[in-house]
Design a protein around this nucleic acid. Sequence first.
DNA 1: GGGTGTGAAGCCGTTCACAGCA
DNA 2: TGCTGTGAACGGCTTCACACCC
Lengths: 227, 227
Amino acid sequence: MILKHKNMSDNKQLVLPERTVERLSEYRRMLFRQMNNYEIKKTHIYSHELASLHGITAVQVRRDLMLIGFTSDIKKGYNIKELINCIAEIIDTPTITNIAVVGMGKMAKAITSYFNGKRNKLKIIASFDSDPEKIGAKIAGIHCYDISSLVEIIKKEKIKMLVLTLPSSQVDDIKSDIIESGIKGILNFTSSTINLDKEANIYIQDFDIITLLEKIAYFSKENNENL
Amino acid sequence: MILKHKNMSDNKQLVLPERTVERLSEYRRMLFRQMNNYEIKKTHIYSHELASLHGITAVQVRRDLMLIGFTSDIKKGYNIKELINCIAEIIDTPTITNIAVVGMGKMAKAITSYFNGKRNKLKIIASFDSDPEKIGAKIAGIHCYDISSLVEIIKKEKIKMLVLTLPSSQVDDIKSDIIESGIKGILNFTSSTINLDKEANIYIQDFDIITLLEKIAYFSKENNENL
DNA sequence: GGGTGTGAAGCCGTTCACAGCA
DNA sequence: TGCTGTGAACGGCTTCACACCC
């Protein structure tokens, strides 16, 4: 509808920086909150307001909005509703994007329960496991399939993204299936890095709790001493 | 013991880049696996071997090891055991670092069960919640305290890091408590950014599943079209 | 003056290119 | 020749500085 997004207007779509995309997602949710939940039903917001809500600088906000070609209303700041729509134009997919979880353990259940319902263009619709007890069951509201049917189900159910929460040791076993399935994006909770670089063209985001906690411990240590 | 780490030898400790610290954590775990789990009990490893195990370049590995002042044995590659010890010198704390989880929901339980036992210098030893059903109980092997006793317990139990898994709406309520408690590092699973910049000197790592999945969706989209 | 939009500079991390060494 | 260690170049992202506009 509203199409202030410069990059969308020329047919050659400009790719945004990773960090900008992350912040756009955060801006949007914050903007929703600003628009709805407060007694002061704001319609406009200044860059420095949005910035301080996120603990970043106003320049950063303006730069991000510049990149998506969104401009402010003179003297009143950014129109919240229009900005929400503009961000949606950019980061949302036109139709619902289906996601599946591989390895239906505690973490997967927690993620599924937490996530589903939070975004209306992204939905976890299936899970895979090798445990006979789980296969065929409905866990955290979604059907659990046999991991051996990964490729088949991904294609049938039009699944576009995977969340990997299976034991690291089992990751290698499904690599080729993942590539074959045509999956385009992965959130990898596994502690093993899956390097399927070769032309598979899959966007992978690694998340490893052990690494992160060790990193935090390291920089906490630093905090005590210098700096 | 083995002290090849240049930075440790001069009393002014050099701070490593974030990404390097992350990779060191990953290298270490991979090195353990290389040393123990394989039939070929390797004692040495080349930079390009370690690199390909992680899906990165050999230069990257060498650069990281250069930064920690670790050098190879001539013509044989890096001594695995010594490297493990060197990494431990840098990222491990001398004593066990205690961690607490705030908000004892499904996610917290999954994280605790997953993490505890994996690293011997980091341990989740307590949790906090406001739910009377949970307070006083032992959940996922750890005691759950009343969230109102946050500051007290953190000081008493010498807790140095927090994992925040409580609803975003409740984050603001505990901000001042966190600062008062003297906590040095936070892993924030909440979708609200906690900006407690002001001299609190807390290292914060944000992790927001919604943001990450939206980002992955965005770049998956890109993958389909250009690039 | 109080806000915005943006070229230019700066910073951080990765990669290139190459010298050195057995 | 094959691997390492590293200055220098590069690229992505953030911040500075400033022109512009009501």
